[in-house]
Amino acid sequence: MQIPDVSQVVEIAATSLSSGRYNVVVVYTIHLYEWLISLEEEVSLIHRARWNAIKIAYLFSRYYPLLLFPLHMWSWLGNHDHHTCDKVTRVLYCLLIPFPFSAQTIIMLRTYAFTGRRKSILAILCVAAAAILGLEVWIFGTDFTLSEELFLLYNETGCFAEDRYAQANVFVYRPAYHAAGLFLAIFFFDSICISLIVGYCFWEPNVRCRLAKTFVEQGFAAFLIMSVLNITSAAFYFISARQWNGISLPYALILPNVVACRLILTLRRTVLPTETQELRQHSHIVRNAIERLELDHIP
């Protein structure tokens, strides 16, 4: 365990606050921008589609962060006294639980649908998802506690919480093993999903169609992005340098939702033709019909 001197504590606290606040603004801006540029496509492919589990999961994954994250920005970007943060931190961190889990739900549902809707696969995925949800409830609901050292340095600051194990003693810096374990568990869950998809494509050659190819390509790209986020977050929590703990948390919470929603839109676009594609198909049908009529009238 490392016990820093006062100057190190001040430097670490300043670095943590500035980097944490910049990252919060950046990640929400990315999510907002991606939603705006996808809105027209989302309306045609999602809002106008019939209700099912994927549509519900998509809408929740898209709009829950958009609506709830400003509350967290208020708590992290503003300067609040200890009494205020002590009252709101537990609630705000509990509200973080659906952020990563909603993205995992989309990946789970797509994996189940793509692998033939087999009950055995669904059972495996549900057990793994339940374990992930239990870890998230424990970490964000009970294990994360208010960072007391910030209020010893500043009378008012952002309402940041930290892994309880990492701050068992104020100013004694230790790795945040609990939080790191959560992101490794999410990585293993994603690995199970992508392994099932690749395995199904290998054993079922009949699924090698346009949709299957798109899903494998886009699904693998989504897996790589989420894996980088989760492994990076776990690595930062494993080290004892406190200024890096939680620096990637906003990205690991928000960007998987962005990636999952983009995956759904790509698959819907592959399955459902756009207005332009429909017009081309109709024109092709009309031309073929006219050619047949002309041929029928030729003596």
Rank of each mutant, 00 (worst) to 15 (best):
T84W: 03
Y112F: 04
P98W: 12
L255T: 02
H282G: 02
L66N: 01
E11T: 14
W35A: 06
I132Y: 01
Q218C: 11
A130W: 09
C193K: 07
P70F: 09
I225E: 06
D86H: 05
E204C: 08
L253H: 11
A179V: 14
A128H: 12
L196A: 08
L95Q: 06
A113W: 09
P256Q: 07
R50S: 09
N257T: 01
T266Q: 12
N52C: 12
I247H: 09
A179K: 06
M226C: 13
I186P: 00
T84D: 04
A252Y: 07
V91S: 08
S120I: 04
L59K: 05
H82A: 10
H72G: 10
L77I: 10
N23A: 13
Q2T: 14
K87E: 14
E148N: 04
P250M: 12
K213M: 04
F188T: 07
A103Y: 01
S195A: 11
L150S: 00
A166C: 02
G141N: 06
V91P: 07
A234K: 08
F114S: 13
F215D: 00
T115V: 15
D5K: 11
T15N: 14
V258A: 04
D81C: 10
E42G: 03
I194H: 05
A131E: 12
I30C: 12
L68N: 12
L265N: 06
A53D: 02
I121N: 10
C209Y: 00
L77N: 03
T157A: 13
V25L: 06
S102W: 01
D143N: 15
Q2F: 11
G246H: 07
S248P: 06
L122C: 06
W51N: 11
L45K: 11
F60N: 07
T232W: 01
T142F: 13
W51D: 14
